[in-house]
Design a binder for these strands. Structure first.
Length: 844
RNA sequence: GCGGAGGUGCCGGAGCGGUCUAACGGGCUAGGCUUAGGACCUAGUGGCUUAGUGCCUUCUCAGGUUCGAAUCCUGGCCUCCGCACCA
């Protein structure tokens, strides 16, 4: 073998052995744990900062690169804030109740606890291997009774305040989950977990939390959440669905039936009423003669779920009753119909066929009169030619004293009249419905309620909490094993000591996640849910990171819980998190979302073997802005690896470079410190990395660097690559943890744009030379060997400084002389072309 | 239908009034180094032109504002994502 080859090979091998990623990672993970580097306490005079990622469901299949992406985003932020001198709360926990573990238990005839705890163990190992800087002493696991007892405690508090109640109503049922679901968990008529399973409607008596009591605040406060993505706020607004309108009291058979409308201006156009076929009081107004017809219709409706009604033809049946319009005193027929929602408004509408498309279709079908009460400006509506309802604005007609009025004005005028006559009022309606929390499943928080034959519904006394899930239970069937498990079910009534039964339903797991962020503040408290002082010190969360899929579930619920706990006097803030960051989804190389079933998952532990976890972290956030979906690329990570190699090379040979940084390098560094800091704070990680690359290139091009500047670069890199930077930090002679070092500061005075310009000038010269070389090759078929630069004397020093860089980038010798140097070599008299900022060039 | 986000070179993705053929990365092409390959390094990557120049064409499309637009305004087209008979 050639000597050179051997050298090369040695160098290569040296490189590989030099970066044994796994050894480095393990070493620092161990060291961080031993020295409790990330443990924090509220006893600190630093300012607090709370970074939180949505805690995971500990699935049996462990975590993949998509999770790693999510946690890395938070870890980078937490590390930045820690270095910036904040007292950072950055915890992790597990949403460990839930169906998959229970289903696994049923399959294996085992206990879900076993699966859950194994999965958590695996998760923790994997998360530690990613280098996430959690304070592991604060871990929260929702399946542990020292956590869920406080779910029960909150439930009882809500019960006391009338916010937890039991009601029979039509509810969503998923046959795959074998339980009911909240409205929020029904997506497009399907179960959120089983997107191919249609939700059925069942009439059941269930437990609800009265989230609607907070509907208004939940809606209005969205405007105060300046640091939430617009998209999420829009989705929540949509979901809560606030609309302003008028309550109008119609009279049917001597009774008042209030209805809600946003179009009080059309009240003179009401020609019939429609009550929802699912309305609980429907039969109060069905006459004997019409009962058969209504029954027939209602039965037909029953077989189709509420969500399925979409796109159906408007259908209904006459109830036999008539309603009296409070303004006109006209009698109009009341129908029942399939297009009126029982749960919205009052479940009944006043129908104005001329100005509402649904009413129009219904009226056409049942030959009900249509009455025009709004005429557009430049068009004349005519009953005979009307093909659809006119829903836009116009002037009122056929409306007695309101004729001629603009319809928008008429809304408030007519409402005022109704208010004056006490026949209605201005009101607000919400789409949001109460939160159904009962689940007919085992693996969740037991609802702390006892049913007594004599006393009825009795809450479990707080001193008896927690109501624990039994460990010694057999999963033999699909059914919730609590049913019929006497040790659990049979109890004495806390009130009369008579025979009673426990509720066997458990709570929706979204209950657990509605307040877990508060428990992190005081996770080991055995006496109370949390120490008020601690929670109010750490909270609200400063940055909350998670996927957008929770926009109308968790992200609404946890706002609701926060407000409730505030009203209990436990919290002194209104919103759980100031800032919300939605990370994008990591897709596999095939372009699809990473999932086990698709077989496109990339495992961090696999990638780490060859590239190191820091390389993966760096790569994950360098691809694009972290709020965008990104695709994993096995060739892309090579680019990050190259960068890591260069950094290692640089710091391994740092000694030979230590000295004084040039003004130019100082300027560069100060500039990027400034920019990178703000990029990181705004989650523009991808841009920060580009700047890191650029400044590193400048470092490589400089002969010398000060120790401080060399250290600054490592600090800037640290949030992305915590293990490697820790390693290099020590390699260059430090004994501290870079994790705990102070984030580099910058000095605006040191940022010198003039120096940047000079460098640009030199680069321009290099470009020019290259261009000439190209032309020489093409036109003259000559390859130049030497470059002569003629400079105005003032620029001589600059080009001498860059001499080496220019030679390196051209791979040619250059010869620099001043234009006024008589002895210079200039056969073609090029020197005269030199100008300030632009040297003359001669090649040969 | 309502609401939100977008459309940039071969690809991912920056830029959001001049310094833009447009950062950075990937890919590709060529060259160097190598017995060879890989790795690594260097260069090129809209077109024409030129001893370092000049010109044209480009940032979804069509108009407009401006001395000047990828960037601002108006309108169209397309994509993605929520919600959807909510009275």
């Amino acid at each position: 073998m050639h000597k050179k080859t051997i050298e090369k090979k040695e160098k290569d091998e040296n490189k590989i052995s030099m970066i044994n990623f796994l050894t480095i990672e393990k070493k620092w993970q161990k060291s961080w744990a031993e020295k409790k580097v990330f443990q924090i306490s509220e006893k600190s005079n630093k300012k607090k900062f709370y970074v939180l990622e949505m805690y995971p469901y500990p699935s049996g299949s462990g975590l993949h690169m998509g999770h790693a992406f999510n946690y890395t985003i938070g870890d980078i932020y937490a590390r930045l804030k820690r270095m910036q001198g904040f007292n950072v709360l950055y915890p992790m926990g597990y949403d460990s109740f839930g169906l998959p573990a229970e289903n696994a238990a049923i399959k294996a005839k085992s206990h879900p606890k076993k699966f859950t705890e194994e999965a958590i163990k695996h998760f923790i190992e994997q998360q530690k291997a990613i280098g996430l800087s959690y304070d592991w002493t604060r871990i929260v696991e929702t399946h542990k009774s020292d956590y869920y007892r406080w779910d029960q405690w909150i439930f009882l508090k809500m019960f006391e305040k009338g916010l937890a109640y039991r009601k029979k109503s039509p509810v969503n049922f998923c046959s795959k989950c074998n339980t009911v679901l909240a409205n929020e968990q029904v997506h497009d008529g399907k179960c959120w977990r089983h997107t191919d399973t249609k939700v059925e409607i069942k009439q059941l008596e269930q437990w609800f939390l009265k989230i609607t009591d907070y509907a208004n605040e939940l809606y209005d406060n969205l405007d105060l959440l300046k640091e939430w993505p617009e998209r999420i706020k829009a989705m929540q607004k949509n979901w809560i669905g606030k609309s302003y309108g008028t309550q109008v009291d119609f009279e049917i058979n001597g009774k008042i039936w209030p209805i809600f409308t946003t179009r009080a201006d059309t009240i003179y156009g009401v020609t019939f009423m429609v009550i929802s076929a699912q309305h609980p009081r429907l039969y109060e107004i069905v006459t004997r003669e019409q009962k058969k017809e209504v029954d027939k219709f209602v039965n037909k409706i029953k077989s189709t779920s509420e969500k399925d009604l979409e796109g159906l033809e408007k259908e209904g049946a006459f109830t036999g009753s008539y309603a009296i319009n409070p303004i006109t005193k006209e009698k109009v027929p009341v129908y029942t119909g399939n297009f009126v929602l029982a749960e919205y408004g009052s479940g009944m509408v006043m129908a104005v066929p001329a100005h509402d498309q649904r009413d129009f279709e219904f009226a056409e079908r049942y030959k009900i009169p249509i009455k025009i009460v709004i005429q557009p400006e430049n068009q004349n509506l005519n009953l005979n030619s009307m093909k659809e309802a006119y829903v836009a604005d116009g002037k009122l007609v056929n409306s007695q004293e309101f004729n001629g009025l603009n319809n928008r004005e008429a809304i408030s005028k007519i409402t005022e009249l109704l208010e004056k006559k006490k026949l209605g009022k201005k009101t607000t309606q919400f789409k949001l419905r109460d939160w159904l929390i009962s689940r007919q499943r085992f693996w969740g928080t037991p609802i702390p309620i006892i049913y007594c034959e004599k006393c009825g519904i009795i809450p479990v006394p707080k001193k008896d909490l927690p109501v624990k899930l039994p460990d010694d239970i057999n999963f033999t069937s699909e059914r919730n094993p609590l049913i019929g498990y006497d040790k659990f079910v049979k109890v004495k009534c806390p009130k009369c000591n008579g025979n009673a039964k426990r509720e066997t339903d458990t709570m929706d797991t979204f209950v657990n996640s509605s307040w877990y962020f508060l428990r992190y503040c005081d996770s080991k408290n055995k006496k109370e849910i949390f120490d008020k002082k601690k929670a109010n010190y750490w909270c609200p969360i400063d940055v909350y990171i998670g996927g957008a899929e929770h926009a109308c579930m968790h992200l609404i619920y946890f706002r609701f819980y926060t407000k409730f706990l505030r009203d209990l006097g436990l919290l002194n803030f209104d919103e759980p998190t100031k800032r919300l960051f939605n990370q994008g989804m990591l897709h596999g190389e095939d372009g699809y979302v990473m999932s086990k079933s698709r077989g496109n998952v990339v495992l961090p532990e696999e990638v780490s073997k060859t590239y190191g976890i820091d390389t993966s972290r760096l790569f994950l956030v360098s691809m694009a802005s972290p709020d965008k979906d990104v695709e994993w690329s096995s060739s892309g990570i090579e680019g990050s690896l190259k960068f890591i190699y260069r950094i290692f090379d640089y710091y391994n040979n740092l000694k030979s470079k230590l000295g004084k940084s040039s003004l130019r390098l100082e300027s560069r560094l100060n500039k990027v410190i400034k920019e990178i800091t703000s990029d990181l704070e705004q989650f523009r990680y991808n841009l920060a990395i580009i700047k890191l690359r650029q400044v590193f290139e400048s470092m490589e091009n400089e002969k010398q660097i000060s120790k401080k500047d060399a250290e600054s670069f490592l600090k800037l890199l640290h949030p992305f690559c915590p293990h490697i930077t820790e390693e290099l930090w020590h390699k260059i002679g430090n004994k501290t943890f870079v994790s705990k070092e102070k984030w580099p500061s910058y000095d605006d005075k040191k940022i010198n744009e003039e120096l940047e310009k000079q460098e640009q000038q030199v680069n321009q010269t290099i470009e020019d030379i290259k261009n000439i070389i190209k032309i020489m090759k093409e036109k003259q078929n000559k390859i130049p060997e030497k470059v002569y630069l003629y400079l105005i004397p003032k620029e001589l020093a600059l080009y001498k400084e860059f001499n080496e860089i220019i030679e390196k980038s051209l791979n040619l010798k250059i010869n620099i002389s001043a234009v006024n140097d008589f002895k210079k070599y200039d056969p073609q008299n090029k020197a005269q072309k030199a100008k300030p900022g632009k040297p003359a060039i001669y090649l040969e």
